[in-house]
Nucleic acid binder design. Structure first.
Lengths: 218, 218
DNA sequence: AGAAAAAACCCCTTTCAAGGGGTTTTTCTA
DNA sequence: TAGAAAAACCCCTTGAAAGGGGTTTTTTCT
């Protein structure tokens, strides 16, 4: 039916190939058409401000320049009627929760199938939100964790962070002491205090924490 | 022309959505058609052994069960006439070099456009190899760095990978031995052999390697 | 300025990690 | 099927890691 107005979709992902392929997929869906593609958040913002306003935005989380978090926030603030569907490989609870808090309406993992993709688009347009079973489970357990843990958020000072970075090298504690211009005993104290704070009991535990929380360059 | 035999392409990627979208893209190319899709290396191996033999295989590097490295190796050994085109976001020299050493014919980054994708397919079929400008530059600088070190690419067997994953926990080697149903001495051997292979000399070194190479879940 | 807290320092002990030397058992292969 | 290679096992030594107990110095707060 030519007269039915199609849902206009915008796609933002820095992987051109995936983006293009997704665009074709969307265009093949009944009732949807791709309005434009964008490389990152900035790009999408620019195009929308040039009066290319889509109904739905498909967003990756990891993008250069302006990532999915910022983009969602901006969209939600300036164009609240635009529905944001997050499309990513990141399946950790924190990211999911963060995106919904910022205003996302749906969250789709990249290992979803095309049918689920279509379902997500339909839901987001008609029912306002979309949650896959997997994502909703993650959300619930994530909120759970939020409840009991985290009495006080772990706050590390600069020196502790510094020590943590050194702990991720193959230097011995003695050598780290030299690097930090401290006595080995003091390093023992740092270690102990971090063991307590981070609830670990070995150097490997320190390393894993540092990496999980992005405190070291990988 | 209906009589022209199309180039049969297989696609292996654990992200279903991307995979499906890519399949459509390939099917839209003149002279190409998708023979099958696979979730990982094992999957592709099974299908090929069931006499579904493609001309070209599109491979992601990071996959569960059997990753791109192993898959390329197996293909090159057992079906040397199948051309392998690597399609990934990993753009570091080591990965690129490793894949070519293992028998890949082309290396395409996911931020390439569809035209480049088509070019890569054409090149790989007709001219045997495909190198984008970016990748060939990486190769050259990478080989430079490589000149003195790293003759052979590091290949780890399943048990070594297993041990590596355990090494990223807070268990002691003795406890790891129990978990793996091996004597602590054998664990010593694994450790030593990995120290040599990976050119590290501490457990922290093992952990960092495992993480940098995506062998553990973070 | 004086008390309290935090940071840096010191000593000692036990266990773990790492490096070296070997033997037995299994697996591959010529 | 003998012989080589690889995998699993064992012993011993040294230094590092981890946990416990302190003291001194510096900072912070009224």
């Amino acid at each position: 039916m030519k007269t039915v107005k199609k849902i206009q979709v915008a796609i933002a992902d820095d992987h051109v190939l995936l983006r293009t392929a997704l665009a074709r997929l969307v265009n093949s869906f009944d009732g949807y058409s791709v309005l434009f593609e964008a490389d990152n958040g900035k790009d999408i913002r620019a195009k929308i401000m040039q009066h290319q306003v889509p109904d739905v935005v498909l967003l990756d989380v990891n993008m250069p320049e302006m990532d999915g978090f910022e983009a969602t926030q901006w969209l939600h603030k300036n164009y609240p009627h635009i529905k944001v569907l997050v499309l990513t490989m990141l399946s950790d609870e924190r990211t999911i929760i963060k995106m919904f808090r910022l205003g996302a309406k749906g969250y789709l993992l990249k290992n979803a199938g095309p049918e689920e993709f279509k379902t997500a688009l339909d839901s987001i347009v008609n029912k306002d939100v979309y949650l896959s079973e997997y994502v909703s489970n993650k959300l619930v357990t994530g909120l759970h964790k939020d409840a009991d843990r985290d009495e006080k958020p772990v706050i590390l000072n600069e020196k502790e962070k510094d020590f943590l970075r050194w702990a991720c090298t193959e230097l011995s504690y003695k050598e780290i002491a030299e690097k930090m211009f401290l006595s080995p005993r003091t390093i023992d104290d740092y270690r102990q205090s971090l063991f307590t704070k981070l609830k670990v009991h070995s150097r490997v535990g320190l390393v894993m924490y540092a990496i999980r929380n992005g405190m070291v360059d990988i």
